[in-house]
Amino acid sequence: MTGAEAQWIEQALQGDDNAFGFLVESYQKPVYSLCNRMLGNANDAEDAAQESFIRAYQHLKKYNQDRSFTTWLLSIASHYCIDQIRKRRLPVVPMDELPVEIISDNRSPQPENHLRQREKDALIQKMLNGLKPTDRAAIVLRYWYEFSEVEISETLKISVSAVKSRLFRARRSLADAWITNSSKSAIKERKPNESPAF
């Protein structure tokens, strides 16, 4: 955390909305990204990220400044998303129907890249949707935020051994999803060469 961020926290603790607004500006991307990966669509992610920041602002007094602000913020966001998944019982969206938000890349505006990115995102979301909410959070924190097992345990408020077993189970599930997807793709690719007589 930078000196300016520490100052914003102090000012936000005094009730300065704009100071917390600066923190929102700084941390919007990691929080939104986590929510997006957890919930699987842009609208829910936006709501969840906004709500997470409101909760963070309301409970800012509970934040221990010796700890990482990012970990604390992502902890709020991940718990909120886990609750949302459990409450709404979000259905597993079919791969083709997934609303994937594509970040425009000015350096490579080719439609092939766009399509490839879209397919990649859809595949990722499909794999993540097959995981239990807490396992999904553990995987997102491990591979997008490169959190250690200790950091994940602090963020999700579970033991390190629980993190290990959740990551193990999640990786197994991801591998199974990957194998299933690869075999489906192989069948799709073969189809054009098949004889129309069959």
């Binding site: 939104y32 990204s33 997006n36 992610a45 990220a49 970040i103 990649k120 591998a175 690869s182």
Partner: peptide, 18 residues
């Protein structure tokens, strides 16, 4: 499969808010 799946996860771009 596990190598490919985790590699896709860690190399994909993070979505940004509007």
């Amino acid at each position: 499969a596990v190598t490919m799946a985790t590699s896709v996860l860690s190399t994909s771009e993070s979505p940004s808010p509007q």
